[in-house]
Computed example of a mutant assay.
Amino acid sequence: MTPYGSFSFFFILAILLAPTVILGLQGKRFHTYNMIVSVLVLAIIFSSKLTGFIALIIFTIWQVLLIQGYIRYRKKANSGLVFTLAVIASILPLMFSKFMPYFSPINWASFLGISYLTFKATQMIMETRDGLIKQNIPLHRLLYFILFFPTISSGPIDRYRRFDKDLKQELTGEDYKLLLYNGINKIFQGFLYKYIIGYSINHFFLANLRFIAANHFESQLYYMYGYSFYLFFDFAGYSAFAIGVSYIMGVKSPENFNLPFISRNMKDFWNRWHMSLSFWFRDYVYMRFVFWMTKKKWIKNRNITSNLGYVLLFLLMGFWHGLEIQYIVYGIYHALLMVCYNMFEQWNKKHKWWPQNKFTQVVSVLLTFHVVCFGFYIFSGHYIH
């Protein structure tokens, strides 16, 4: 069963989470019960695909051993080589799942949500290296974080320390009432975005573009804008479902979208679109690369270092989406956009060619919107067919 993919899924959730709501409104702790609910829901999600369920179990055991083992090691030593090997070992299952379809008809290493679970596990190893995670983590709490079912499929990607803080926070009945209210609002927002607006764009607009010749410029233009809005409402709707259910379970999962189509530039866009993913790549790829290059003093020019970081970040993001040509080109496209904007931003600080006023802000939003939509057109692969 696909998470949030049918009304029956929501009906099952309503039944399973009813005790959570009752306990929460009474100001009582409910995380132990929610852990049991997570196991039950995961069993329902993977009930139709045994190989995926087995892969999930093996993956979880592997990551738990890596995380717990590295936390114990970090208390005694801090070898860069051991850290690098631990990170590689953590992302190894994801790499297998990405490359295996090209060598085998059965991808036994893949399962629903492997990417987002890998991001959470790898992040814990990195934060342990940084000294942000110092103490051993109880097994049940680590498993709950990794396998937290509302966000398992497509995020948002949470951070362990923020997640753990929510679990430790004492909630009164009034506190939980506000969480419940916001959670229900999020779920209704998800229905509006995904099943009304997103569905309407896909069913009544994109599906009917076939009446125009496929190679017609007008058809491609319509598709570019239609697909961009569909992608946003579908994905933002899913994220709203995940966040809403998280709230009901007493966990304030991070937001994933913040009005991305009013972004004033590409940096602003990536601070608004799929925020948990873009912030993950920013913190654990870009910032580490820049810090490492600065520390080694291999490149003294900060702008060059920053631009190389953007290229690395978006190439990895493109390859993460898949090895198909459209995803790689999409990554290259955004890398070039970020490099160009970074160069323009630095140049404009000296020459003051582009002032900050209402007119330039409107022009910036319109320009960024069209540039972003063309990127989604590349991502869709529609032009290939």
Rank of each mutant, 00 (worst) to 15 (best):
I243E: 04
G244R: 08
M249P: 04
M249I: 11
M249V: 12
G250N: 03
V251A: 04
V251W: 05
K252V: 08
E255P: 03
E255K: 15
N256F: 05
N256E: 02
F257K: 07
L259K: 15
L259D: 14
L259A: 15
F261M: 07
I262V: 13
I262N: 03
S263L: 05
S263C: 04
M266P: 00
M266G: 00
H274V: 02
H274D: 00
M275W: 10
M275Q: 10
S276E: 04
F281G: 08
R282C: 05
D283N: 09
Y284S: 12
V285A: 14
V285N: 12
Y286G: 05
M287T: 05
R288A: 02
R288S: 06
V290D: 00
F291R: 09
W292S: 06
W292P: 01
M293Y: 03
K295G: 00
W298T: 02
I299H: 03
K300G: 11
I304Y: 08
L312K: 06
L312F: 11
L313V: 13
L313A: 10
L313N: 13
L315C: 10
L315Q: 02
L315V: 14
L315S: 07
M317S: 10
M317L: 09
W320L: 05
H321S: 07
H321C: 06
G322N: 10
L323P: 01
L323E: 00
I325M: 10
Q326V: 11
Y327F: 13
I328L: 12
V329G: 08
Y330R: 06
Y333E: 02
Y333W: 07
L336Q: 07
L336M: 14
L337N: 00
L337R: 00
V339I: 14
Y341H: 08
N342I: 11
M343T: 15
M343N: 13
F344C: 06
E345G: 00
W347I: 13
N348Q: 12
N348A: 12
K349H: 15
K350F: 14
K350G: 13
H351S: 09
H351E: 07
K352E: 04
W353S: 12
W354V: 14
Q356P: 01
N357S: 09
K358H: 13
F359L: 14
Q361L: 08
Q361A: 11
Q361R: 13
V365Y: 03
V365I: 15
L366Y: 03
L367R: 02
H370N: 14
V371C: 02
Y377L: 12
I378K: 01
F379L: 03
H382D: 05
H382W: 07
H382S: 07
H382C: 05
I384H: 00
I384R: 05
